[in-house]
């Protein structure tokens, strides 16, 4: 016997699948291999505040109203981030990775899924303190154009500075965090010198390919939204971009252990998800 609730859910899931398909067909945003539970929660949230009558109406709106699509893209991409998130990760990076990069004449770094840029500028601060920033080119990419625009501004609500400062210190920051921004009543603007070596670009990890060779790839809290198949594809992308001895960093709850490419890497600091690509 099929209960009423089960049927409601089944219908909802069909409607959601069609919405996801529409986003792909119309805009090329491919969410088809993202966590279904995650997508569903976010779509139902938007549905509830949208005042629309059905998810199918949302699909219609997504096709004909680009502003609504921007909104949906924001909902589905989850751009929550912070400076020096997981301070122990940055500490490990400073201790185990930067000394190696120091020996290179030029350094390239790729932040994949950089959201509003906090992670990128945290890296820039650390590279600066270690005297590496001047010879480093940082590529910061995301597939969400709205959040990329924010990232370029390097401007954050003043209310967040306290938390950032604490994390900066825990991460082994060598100066005073206030050396890196100018504040007014509402916002803190990071210094221009931190932006100089950063290029922001739109790049979709699902549909775009590699664009340069990197010494260090940082992709944190992005893969958790992908199913296994998609995770493997993206790791493959990073493998193409990294030479032997290149570094790959994942988020604290992400793991290479279950990837088909596990054997291509070796942990450097396992606890912090810092890996090195093996030489062939």
């Amino acid at each position: 016997m099929k209960k009423k609730e089960e049927e409601i859910i089944e219908n909802q899931d069909v409607e959601i699948k069609l919405l996801i398909e529409a986003l792909y067909l119309k805009y090329g945003y491919d969410f088809r291999n993202y966590s279904q539970a995650h997508l569903k929660r976010r779509i139902l949230n938007r549905f509830q505040i949208s005042g629309l009558n059905s998810i199918t109406e949302m699909t219609y709106k997504a096709i004909y109203d680009p502003a609504f699509t921007d909104q949906l893209l924001m909902d589905l991409s989850i751009t929550v981030t912070e400076m020096f998130r997981d301070p122990s990760f940055y500490k490990a990076l400073r201790q185990s990775v930067l000394p190696v990069l120091r020996t290179y004449p030029r350094v390239t770094v790729w932040h994949a899924g950089c959201a509003s840029g906090e992670e990128v500028y945290s890296m820039a601060i650390m590279l600066k303190e270690e005297g590496l920033l001047h010879k480093t080119q940082i590529y910061a990419t995301d597939f969400n154009p709205v959040i990329l625009r924010n990232a370029k501004k390097a401007q954050y609500p003043i209310s967040r500075i306290k938390e950032f400062t604490v994390s900066y210190q825990k991460a082994g920051g060598k100066r005073s965090f206030s050396d890196y921004y100018t504040a007014d009543d509402e916002t803190a603007l990071l210094h221009e010198s931190l932006k100089k070596n950063v290029v922001f670009a739109n790049h979709n990890l699902v549909t775009d390919s590699v664009f340069a060779e990197m010494n260090l790839v940082i992709c944190r809290n992005v893969l958790i939204y992908f199913n296994k198949q998609l995770q493997d594809r993206v790791i493959e992308l990073f493998m193409e971009s990294l030479p032997g001895g290149g570094f790959l960093c994942l988020g604290s709850k992400e793991n290479l252990q279950f990837s088909v490419h596990y054997n291509a890497f070796e942990p450097v600091v396992n606890q912090e998800r810092i890996y090195i690509k093996k030489y062939l």
Binding site: Q36, A37, H38, I78, N221, I224, K253
Partner: peptide, 21 residues
């Protein structure tokens, strides 16, 4: 559930962790 992550369950009963609001 690990601190600072939401814990979700997929239809196949596997875990998903997210850092959403």
């Amino acid at each position: 559930a690990p601190p600072n992550y939401h814990l979700l369950m997929e239809k196949d009963c596997s875990f998903t962790l997210t850092v959403g609001e």
